[in-house]
Write a protein that binds this DNA or RNA. Structure first.
Lengths: 248, 248
DNA sequence: TTGTCGCATTGACTTGGATCAATTGACGGT
DNA sequence: ACCGTCAATTGATCCAAGTCAATGCGACAA
């Protein structure tokens, strides 16, 4: 794979991420950098780098909360994050999971639309909204890139609306697994074994199902040899079947 | 209201909309113009105006279809539009309704993420994606505005995810009515009687319900004096009750 | 080693909303 | 006036997924 042969000096970091210890984490960082900065020149990248600083939290800790002023923009370098909205009575809707390379807070509005907390230990590059906004103002092509990322997120949200509104529980689970597989593939290469850092409850709150239904259907898919459940993950055996269930 | 006293020459049009006959339509047009161009100078507005041309379709006609190349950007001046995605087996998810003043195709990606067809006769200003994109490239502040509009749409999509995933049928209907009331208020001023240009089926496909459930619950809310059903619309009698059902 | 805490799983049962089936009413065409 | 179509309503019945309850199973601390 190209990534493995790329010389170290090509591993530009958007920010200083001193806690990264493994080569895997470093790979995450590389992917993240490419995901933002395809439109950036090396010198611009250096400038942006100066604005960022390392940000680390442990599992279960909060990055930011719904309705609070959004002072920061994050670029995730390792770990995964749960993004969710709460109703007053405690019902929860998970609106997404952020994986390494993903941006948080790119819409740059006054208040956070959702809460975010770490599912695993997380490292990220943090920018103040002010700094990031000012930098973007000086780089129109970066703003275009930002807009196209927002458009992509909107499209994902609309796909999720179809899943929530018009699909059966089994189809929801299949869509979730197939969608997650695709995202992990961009991070750590194609693989049929995918990590599931979130709980069954989280998956249920993402798909509009209960824990029990998620558990039952995962078990059933395993019994029918479509998947194998492994600690903190799933191995997809019958991808074609899952894709058929998930098809648009 | 300020709009009523504004002299005619202030009614800048983004495009030529020759079919508009009533002052009501003209008001729509004004609102639409403001919604895009708060950040534009009069001369820039004139430039943009040159790029647009009038676009009219009758009810039930198609503006564009899912997965086709998106060649155009539209700014709706009158009428309403249903935006939806279809599954291969015919199940449908309505992802939104466009009202006067709304933009379609702002994400400016290669292919349409959804289909759009007219619920009523529609007039719009049409730009080619090429023209619009090039114009935006010359106006960074307009690009910022576009990005903030996309961010707002994303936020609405996430609210809809909560509604689809975690609310009861009754709460879905209440949220829909309250949400629509708010949108109509920005167009034609606050009113407790709101037009419903879409069918019960459309509402069901938007909320993840069947026609029958939508009909039953609307009837029930009417029986309980929370609303009155009128031809092509609803009068909201007990707004506080609906807001309680819809509360975030 | 033992207790406990937080998932995850599994079973029994209940139910909100779907499905199926008429019926009504509004409109436009002939 | 009559017919055909299409949206809306209403009733009867069904079932996919929710609820409630019990058990299993590490991980981890005392």
């Amino acid at each position: 794979m190209d990534a493995m042969t790329r010389p170290a000096e090509r591993h530009h970091h958007l920010g200083l991420c001193p806690n990264q210890k493994s080569t895997v984490d470093c790979e995450h960082c590389r992917v993240r950098t490419l995901s933002v900065c395809a439109a950036l020149e090396p010198d611009e990248l250096q400038q942006l780098d100066k604005l960022s600083h390392a940000f680390c939290v442990n599992a279960k800790q909060t990055l930011f909360e719904q309705d609070e002023p959004s002072n920061n923009v994050y670029n995730l370098t390792s770990g995964s994050v749960r993004l969710y909205k709460l109703l007053p009575d405690g019902r929860r809707q998970v609106v997404g999971f952020a994986l390494p390379g993903d941006f948080l807070g790119l819409s740059m509005v006054e208040k956070n639309a959702f809460s975010a907390d770490a599912l695993t230990p997380v490292t990220a590059c943090q920018f103040t909204r002010q700094d990031f906004s000012e930098f973007v103002d000086t780089k129109p092509h970066l703003l275009r890139r930002l807009h196209s990322m927002a458009a992509h997120e909107l499209s994902l949200a609309q796909d999720q609306m179809v899943i929530l509104g018009r699909r059966t529980a089994e189809e929801k689970i299949a869509s979730f697994l197939i969608g997650l597989r695709k995202r992990w593939a961009r991070i750590s290469g194609a693989s049929v074994t995918i990590p599931l850092p979130m709980t069954r409850q989280d998956i249920g709150d993402f798909l509009g199902l209960t824990v029990e239904t998620v558990s039952r259907l995962m078990t059933r898919l395993a019994r029918e040899k479509a998947i194998v459940i492994v600690p903190d993950g799933v191995r997809l055996l019958d991808v074609p079947r899952l894709e058929r269930l998930a098809e648009t």
